[in-house]
Nucleic acid binder design. Structure first.
Lengths: 242, 242
DNA sequence: CACGATTATATGTCTAGACATATAAGTCAA
DNA sequence: TTGACTTATATGTCTAGACATATAATCGTG
């Protein structure tokens, strides 16, 4: 078993070590559960210091490719099944990235004391003020998605006076409020009257739904529901690694 | 500006350094573009060696929270908008993780020479053999998803003789074939006759669709389409960090 | 002023040690 | 056999240095 394969073209030693091991894992030569050589063995193989192989192994562990267990060794992890990294940018970025003209239209905006439904949706107990917004995003003048959003003003007071008639609330929030945690829920539904009209599709047509909740620490910032025409829009996630 | 905040409760020094910086970024105290202290400044602040702060900063860079530029310093990165990590496990794991009883049923299996449609779907040019499978996954005896799969036998010869009447092809593949890349596409549709019958829902009911393509290097392994009843199933992705 | 050469500097990688700590494995007594 | 104790060992973290390298800034020159 020669771990040091071909001579390095360029990359640094720890990267070569990492790549060598990664290759063996991805080709299946070292299947899940396989114990990879101990650090001191790799030190001997590559004739380097322990810190160097440690760095390579640490990165592999961070990438969930291997699992490190004290006293036992390092083991190839069972493939993380199918994780997928979805990049859901804000709507303007998403649409311009497609090379299409971005359009935005505010349909409705209301500042109100949180109703029971609002509080439930935001996951808060106290009845503070909220802003409720409905708007539409379009690509090349074709409806792309409708957005239904609630912003908690006790977390984001400035949102009360922000001008959402020109700037989409999603962009505004991204630039004004740092967040620490978010949750997305993806589901499917069929268009009701309101959605059908806003998206210019038939009632009963399939729609992709993304519900997103954003927090900053314990405080809820915003809850948003995005409705995409199901036949035109797709979320694509490419994932690398085993 | 005191970087060394409260005394450490337990964690190691480099983790504390990383957490301190992360906090400042997430709270917005250090906004995107802000230059974080040079390594030698952090060394002085925390009275430790450069390797220790380097490890902390390297991990922050790996997590895309900061960007490191030689000679210039390290800078807070613009928030990665809304990325979402979807964990799509194989169906059995997904259902048992929900605490429900997993059920599997093979509906159809056929070994054939790839048709034009098959080749198109798999993205291959040559007309080799393929296995086409339709099956159903259920949770607590309620239909959970229908699966429509194509396996390229030139990439996975063993699939020709595997017994898919008891073991779901997804699990079998995960345990027998390592993969290097996958792509998911998520969309919405409405149930047609076949789907409605298999899922025991009404024709025209919304369905979530996941199309997954899996490769090993340049070879296509399998293409699968999963159809979930849209009102019952949700994909949840929680994401941390800004 | 524009452009090329030089220099200073922050990060990138690496070493040869050290001690800490979790834990697999072995040992011994009840 | 089981449970408690001990030991060996692989990983986890850290140090005080070193040289490499990319590049921002500066300096000179045409």
């Amino acid at each position: 078993m020669s771990l040091a394969t071909e001579a390095a073209d360029q990359p640094t030693l720890y990267k070569r070590i990492r790549a060598d091991i990664e290759k063996r894992i991805l080709t299946g030569e070292w299947p899940p559960g396989h114990r990879i050589p101990f650090e001191h063995e790799l030190v001997a193989r590559y004739r380097c210091s322990r810190m160097t192989v440690n760095k390579a192994l640490s990165e592999l562990a961070q990438a969930d490719l291997i699992e490190r267990r004290r006293r036992a060794g390092s083991f190839v992890r069972r493939p993380q099944h199918h994780s997928a990294v979805l990049k859901i940018a804000d709507m303007r970025a998403e649409i311009t990235a497609l090379g299409r003209a971005y359009g935005y239209e505010l349909i409705h905006r209301k500042l109100r004391t949180a109703t029971a439904a609002d509080r439930d949706r935001l996951g808060v107990k106290k009845a503070g003020k909220v802003v409720a917004i409905t708007c539409r995003h379009s690509a090349d003048n074709v409806p792309f998605a409708v957005e239904d959003r609630l912003i908690d003003l006790s977390s984001v007071p400035d949102a009360a006076t922000a001008d959402f008639s020109r700037e989409p609330p999603g962009s505004w929030l991204l630039h004004h409020v740092p967040w620490t945690e978010a949750e997305h829920t993806i589901s499917a539904t069929v268009a009701d009257d309101r959605a059908a009209e806003a998206l210019d599709i038939a009632v009963g047509a399939p729609c992709l739904v993304i519900d997103r909740y954003t927090w900053r620490g314990a405080r809820t910032i915003t809850a948003v529901r995005l409705l995409y025409p199901g036949d035109s829009h797709r979320l694509v996630a490419r994932f690398k690694g085993g």
